[in-house]
């Protein structure tokens, strides 16, 4: 099969797999059908079993990645919509963003040092807790690899989603803003989705925290990299 044929199949499969699984998840609501978990697995299996070379896979699907920048700009709409909440709790949201950002950076840095991970992994891990478009933008300042970063960000999101409930119970964290900020800072988009299961306010705060930590990470990355690399 020619490369452009494989490329077209890859794009069609990626799109249909994503939208079908999403529909299925919305209907069934079982955790193992969560698109963030199952879609990458299905597509990796598909690419490996059909032996599609990666350049062929990316030939058309890279247009999907090009939508990350417009999607980042689209985050300005929820910021604008929730301006009232931001203006009534500027301190809470601001401190939540700074704490989350620094804890994410420092915990990743410390742990990768302790486990002495190779540089390409450890440098790609630093930005793991912010949303993918911001992480892929910021990672190069630390010497990280964007593709590895995307994978680590995805894993971090899944982990945050899975471990948050018992942690909140154990630590008696129950105010909506605390739950939202913690999930938004630790697990970005996946965390925001999880937070909206706790309640509407939790979801909104998680989204805002995720967006602001992302922006702060991108803007601060050149500065943080002086200390952490």
């Amino acid at each position: 099969m020619s490369q452009s044929m494989l490329a077209a199949i890859s794009l069609v499969f990626t799109l249909s797999c994503y939208f079908l699984i999403k529909q299925l998840y919305l209907k069934k609501r079982v955790w193992w059908l969560a698109p963030i978990l199952i879609v990458p697995v299905v597509i990796v299996l598909f690419v490996v079993s059909l032996k599609i070379p990666l350049p062929a896979y990316f030939e058309y699907t890279h247009w999907l990645v090009a939508l990350l920048a417009p999607a980042t700009i689209a985050f300005s709409v929820p910021i604008y919509r929730e301006r009232k909440l931001i203006f009534s709790y500027p301190l809470t949201i601001g401190i939540g963003v700074v704490t989350g950002l620094l804890l994410g950076l420092l915990s990743s840095w410390g742990l990768t040092q302790i486990f002495s991970l190779p540089p390409e992994l450890s440098q790609s891990t630093l930005v793991r807790s912010v949303s993918t478009p911001f992480a892929m933008e910021a990672t190069s300042a630390f010497g990280g690899v964007p593709e590895l970063t995307a994978m680590l960000v995805l894993l971090t999101g899944i982990i945050g989603m899975l471990v948050c409930e018992p942690l909140f119970k154990l630590a008696k964290i129950n105010s909506p803003l605390a739950i939202g900020a913690a999930l938004g800072a630790a697990a970005h988009g996946a965390g925001a989705a999880k937070a909206s299961e706790f309640g509407k306010e939790e979801g909104v705060v998680a989204s805002l925290t995720m967006i602001f930590t992302g922006i702060a990470m991108v803007l601060g990355a050149p500065f943080f990299s002086i200390f952490l690399v």
Partner: peptide, 20 residues
């Protein structure tokens, strides 16, 4: 904006696939 932020996962599937 709702669509773009709602389908964010779709846009970073390709880089994740390069885990191969």
């Amino acid at each position: 904006a709702g669509w773009l932020t709602g389908e964010l996962l779709l846009f970073f599937i390709p880089p994740v696939i390069s885990i191969i």
